[in-house]
Design a protein around this nucleic acid. Structure first.
Lengths: 124, 124
DNA sequence: CAAACATACAACCATTCGGTTGTATGTCAA
DNA sequence: TTGACATACAACCGAATGGTTGTATGTTTG
């Protein structure tokens, strides 16, 4: 795994680890919003909201497009998906553990059918 | 959305926003590890690793089981899945936006078939 | 042009974070 | 019982975070 990937993962998870930023992400995924339109929604200064937007932009969760004097922010769903895929990879690690456990059980009880864990492994 | 859910989301994303902690999660999802076994893997003090484990435990990403003088940590895949589902919900918000845009296009060009965006909406 | 608006950014501040060392407590083994 | 090991936790430190206010710069409009 490249070091840059870890940097990116740090930035993405950190960006999402704040409820104001998660809320901004929801809004800009639903549609374009100017920074001041976003700022109007929260009980904090314009500068604070602008900094949140900057954190999200650096993490790649949104991009900005200038239109006149406004800066329109738009959510990037691919960034959201890349985070989801990191979690899927983690789930895969866990599935490997369960598979190993099942193999052990099968070796101990050669005639028993695989116990088929209640919540895993999904093969769909 | 309950306030507690946001607290939990904060804790989960924050816990995952550190590469050492993500690595610990990988290891404990793959199998049980004592805290000192984990600490041996990283170039930092035992106390530092123990604090990382505590952060992950508070977020619900792992749980500990005492065995003799050791504390065995085990990853909780359901917590990982709950994070993934938050991201899926975000993706759903984005899909709503695309659906709205498609509806507008359909209204402007009543005879055109829906343009079917390159990466969305997935209906599988 | 001037005034109002939208944004950007620097400086500052309190709190949190990620690390350290040191100490206390519990458990296993000789 | 006495060490040695595994864990927990407090106290501390520098850096980053999340907020503030103030100032500068561009853009639209009267």
């Amino acid at each position: 795994m490249a070091e840059d990937d870890e940097d990116r993962a740090d930035a993405l998870f950190h960006a999402l680890a704040d409820r104001t930023r998660r809320d901004i992400v929801r809004r800009v995924l639903a549609g374009e919003h100017s920074v001041s339109a976003l700022a109007a929604k929260y009980d904090m200064s314009f500068a604070a909201v602008q900094k949140h937007v900057a954190v999200l932009e650096k993490a790649g969760l949104l991009s900005k497009r200038r239109q006149g004097r406004e800066q329109l922010a738009s959510g990037d769903v691919d960034a959201v998906r890349s985070v989801a895929s990191m979690l899927t990879e983690l789930e895969g690690v866990w599935r490997g553990r369960i598979a190993r456990i099942d193999a052990l059980i099968a070796a101990d009880h050669p005639t028993q059918p695989p116990p088929s864990h209640p919540d895993g492994p999904r093969k769909d």
